[in-house]
Write a protein that binds this DNA or RNA. Sequence first.
DNA 1: GCAAATATTTCGTTCGGTCGAACTAAAGAC
DNA 2: GTCTTTAGTTCGACCGAACGAAATATTTGC
Lengths: 156, 156
Amino acid sequence: MAETDDARRAAALERLMTVGRQNSAVTVMFHSAIAAKQGLNATEGKTLDYLQRQGPLTAKDLAELTGLAPASVTGLVDRLEAKGFVRRVKHPTDKRRVLVEPNEAKLAELAGFFEDWTRDIVEVCAQFTTDELETVNRFLAVMTEQQRKATARLTD
Amino acid sequence: MAETDDARRAAALERLMTVGRQNSAVTVMFHSAIAAKQGLNATEGKTLDYLQRQGPLTAKDLAELTGLAPASVTGLVDRLEAKGFVRRVKHPTDKRRVLVEPNEAKLAELAGFFEDWTRDIVEVCAQFTTDELETVNRFLAVMTEQQRKATARLTD
DNA sequence: GCAAATATTTCGTTCGGTCGAACTAAAGAC
DNA sequence: GTCTTTAGTTCGACCGAACGAAATATTTGC
């Protein structure tokens, strides 16, 4: 029954596209809702993402990552600092440089925002066996990498 | 061996959180990269999303959906029209109203943007059995709904 | 040491996106 | 038929965020 198997797979793939696109759209909205709730614009949110993932970065690093002019980074960091999300720290060896350090407490507070969200997730996961969750994990990991590459391709 | 099962599940859940967050971050970046490539800002992108999903909408509808003032919607539609993504159409029965109609051709062109992306996805999916893909679909559908509710909770 | 290079900030300017208020046109109420 | 309400646009103004150029501080190279 190769044909019905093929049909079933084709259906699964098509549905994956649909559901994946819906999920993407909702994810974007969720993110922007959270950012808005904290008075962060897109640039600021992206910057915090980078800092959270990579730890302290210099202004120059941030300029490259965000694609902003040096002068703009100064303003960006000023705003984030005023809101308490980061602080400027002198670079240990090169005093020209400024390290922008994320405020862990503030980010934890942000994580607190996710708390009931996390609880909901776990609850929803009750519908899935551990094996299934591992499949999902594997899938998400692969897709994330694929999408990361696609993004890089777009922005080069 | 209930304990090791518990441990395995806990590990799977924790990993899900991590990988899920990474995936979200990348998704957001991917979206904003696509939007930027087309010269669209966040508001314009969101508006096109609504139009694509719900079909033609009046300026008033858009004002409510986006949370913008009427005057701002005029400007928003002007910009989208100038870029060729939408057109204004007279409402059939109420001549005060303006229907904002998405340009299917232009959106298809946008879909073309996704073409090689889609190809990559399918390729990546070769690593998964059809059963696994169906599990993923089920998971994504559930998570999408959950996240949709969470977003609504944040923006009310 | 001193000149050139590098990292960041300051300053003045510009621009896009939003707003409120006033205006126009059409629909609905009575 | 007038009066009120509703939909959308125009206009003038404002604000946040970005930029380039010049200034400052520090490091590197010779």
